[in-house]
Amino acid sequence: MDVFMKGLSKAKEGVVAAAEKTKQGVAEAAGKTKEGVLYVGSKTKEGVVHGVATVAEKTKEQVTNVGGAVVTGVTAVAQKTVEGAGSIAAATGFVKKDQLGKNEEGAPQEGILEDMPVDPDNEAYEMPSEEGYQDYEPEA
């Protein structure tokens, strides 16, 4: 019985440690998101679009440190934060509304985080759909 109880105690310690790591990862992701939003706020009209992409990228980098179902929630929060940063930029006159959601080359930025393969159960990952990809044929 002692062996059984000791095993359960060790398992509990492992769960607590994993929860603490997840909590730490979420806190880091939130900190990076805040950094990115402050970065966007300090940019001029020309830099705002690039700044919004930076927020998304920093958040995406930190999301990889967070495991399990938390990833889905962090990704949703990050996307809403990026959308909010863009709205703030438009409201303050840093950028025109028609410039939001495009990178410096004018290509749409939507789907940055949505296409990231995420499995809350950590069982399997699927690649994003290939609808947006084109076949590449090298020139002879």
Rank of each mutant, 00 (worst) to 15 (best):
D2T: 03
D2A: 01
V3L: 08
F4Y: 01
F4C: 02
K6S: 03
G7P: 02
G7R: 15
G7T: 09
G7L: 09
L8N: 00
L8F: 03
S9Q: 11
A11F: 03
K12P: 00
G14N: 05
V15L: 08
V15Y: 03
V16K: 10
A17H: 11
A18G: 03
A19N: 01
E20R: 06
T22P: 00
K23D: 00
K23W: 14
G25E: 12
G25P: 01
A30G: 01
K34S: 01
E35H: 08
V37R: 00
L38C: 08
V40T: 01
V40L: 14
G41W: 09
T44A: 13
T44C: 11
E46F: 04
G47T: 14
V48L: 10
V48H: 00
V48C: 04
V49T: 13
H50N: 06
V55H: 01
A56E: 01
E57M: 07
E57N: 05
K58R: 14
K58W: 11
T59P: 01
E61A: 07
E61S: 06
E61Q: 14
T64C: 14
V66T: 03
V66L: 11
G67D: 01
G68L: 14
G68H: 15
A69M: 09
V71E: 03
V71C: 06
T72I: 15
T72V: 11
T72G: 14
V74T: 02
V74C: 14
A76F: 15
E83C: 06
G84E: 07
G84C: 05
G84T: 10
S87R: 02
S87W: 15
I88S: 02
A89R: 14
A89H: 08
A89L: 08
A89K: 02
A90S: 15
A90K: 06
A90L: 13
V95Q: 02
K96E: 11
K97H: 14
K97L: 14
D98G: 09
Q99C: 10
L100S: 08
K102G: 02
N103D: 10
N103S: 12
N103Y: 06
E104C: 01
G106C: 10
A107H: 09
P108F: 07
E110N: 14
E110C: 09
L113G: 06
E114V: 05
D115C: 08
D115W: 06
M116E: 10
P117A: 04
V118K: 11
V118P: 14
D121V: 04
N122I: 10
E123D: 11
Y125R: 09
E126W: 02
E126K: 08
E126L: 05
M127K: 12
M127G: 03
M127P: 04
M127N: 10
M127E: 14
P128K: 05
P128E: 04
P128H: 10
S129E: 09
G132W: 04
Y133A: 11
Y133P: 14
Q134N: 13
Y136C: 13
Y136H: 14
P138W: 06
P138K: 05
A140F: 05
A140W: 06
A140M: 04
